[in-house]
Design a protein around this nucleic acid. Structure first.
Lengths: 146, 146
DNA sequence: AAATATATTGAGAATCAATATCAATATATG
DNA sequence: CATATATTGATATTGATTCTCAATATATTT
């Protein structure tokens, strides 16, 4: 069994929550996707496969997965909450193309280090952060140059 | 007259747009506030003062102010778009307290520099970025410790 | 296993920010 | 002054997300 499933099951039992068919199916569907997905995306995918799962349930379960530490929320500013893998995907930030929407995962140790210092200097205890670098990728620059 | 008003008027005339009472009043209301405000906040403030301005107009004008370079959008992830001063407020990022919601403006030249490098290394042409550092301020830490 | 308590689900309604529609009004230009 | 164009505001609409609540499923206790 996938490690993520085990973690989720442990999380559920620790929280005295139940391990249901829907919860398993939603995790399953999420794990199969490599890219960023919204709750709506997953709802659509699941609907195709079999007996529909209510969309409210999808929204609810995604929250649980975030709590369980398996999923991270990302917000590219278009009004839709998306989710990305967290387990075995160490923390990273995103480079986002304003042309085609493509995203690239990036991490820079110097930035991470300085973020801590900045927070400390204002007597904040840093818990997490979000950083989005917006710009135009090479492809989009070439297209618009034509 | 405030410099911002002049800039907005120039922007409007350059774009062949009209300088209306509503546009002036919305800019005025925005300038009077120092903190981050949403379109809805401004709509509420304006309603108190005099003959109501439609909320659609407030949303529309805020977009114009962003285009005019007088206003910057910020998104603290709570589903509401807020605006902050841009003129005479050089670029900065935000430290946000997860306890009380307080925000602190921060800038770090090293981070800014590294962001450019990171973008370059993926052949992206950086246009802008957002960075939010989340944590707990000293006050909130003290309160919860009690 | 039956009974009881508790958690979960899903359909649909509700919410909330933001946007679109469109007729009435205001402003600019020939 | 007449015509073209832009703006406004009331209202409806959208789209994502959350809430409600009765029906169902799962656990726990006798």
């Amino acid at each position: 069994m996938k490690r993520e499933k085990e973690i989720f099951e442990k999380f559920l039992s620790d929280q005295h929550l139940r391990d249901t068919r829907q919860r398993e199916m939603i995790l399953e569907a999420f794990l199969q996707r490599e890219e960023h997905v919204s709750a709506e995306d997953l709802y659509g995918l699941l609907k195709k496969k079999g007996p529909a799962i209510g969309q409210a349930t999808v929204y609810r379960v995604m929250k649980l997965l975030v709590e369980a530490g398996l999923v991270r929320e990302v917000d590219f500013g278009d009004g839709v909450r998306r989710y990305e893998h967290c387990y075995n995907h160490p923390h990273h930030d995103h480079l986002v193309c304003r042309g085609c929407g493509k995203t690239v995962e990036v991490v820079d140790p110097v930035i991470e280090e300085m973020q801590k210092k900045v927070a400390e200097s204002h007597d904040f205890e840093l818990t997490d952060h979000e950083m989005y670098l917006y710009g135009f990728c090479a492809d989009c620059r070439n297209k618009s140059a034509k």
